[in-house]
Amino acid sequence: MASFPRPVARLIDQLERLPGVGPKSAQRLALWLLREPPERVLALSESLSDAVEQVHVCPRCGYFAEGEACALCDDTRRDESLVCVVADARDLLAIESTDGFGGRYHVLGGVISPADGVGPDDLNVASLLARVEAGDADEVILALNPTPEGDTTANYLARVLRQAAQRRGAAVRLTRPALGLPVGGDLNYADRTTIERAMEGRREI
């Protein structure tokens, strides 16, 4: 029985590892890539290696950084005392698109999801606790989706953040964005006005 040449099979294997791509889609993508003009496909491969080589995770906040820290952490006009915790970079950009928030961010890199084998140790939780323990933040906004995973993560973080604040002998205000986000909704898909209202109307937890 004939099969794909090794390099093609390897490409299909790699594509199949992408989220939402099954074996059939991987084959379709691979065949499409191989029909494209080579220079266009090589441009894709180049942008891939550039992104991987030139961008790293900011050790302070978990967002993408090109220098030592990210542009948001380097920006001295931002309010140090207000830290907004988000699941991933897309949520950060969704909030940034509103211009309504002038504080700092902390990107967890996901939410706690035991069903997917993701626990607190798999996320940027330790660096968040370190920030609060260092006394940087007076208020931490837990801008996580109102889903089982988002709610569980927010409640877990609230508990360990309170403990972290206690260790430095201070209190930290813990809030969540309020109205607007539908139950089970995704921050990422919400419109600007909804996000703006949710951030303004945040309530303490």
């Binding site: 069903a115 889903t147 089970g184 419109d191």
Partner: peptide
């Protein structure tokens, strides 16, 4: 269901 305001979104959550 991953669109905003989908009425079925809560139904598709774990548990």
């Amino acid at each position: 269901v991953r669109k905003p305001k989908s009425r079925q979104a809560p139904v598709c959550q774990l548990f």
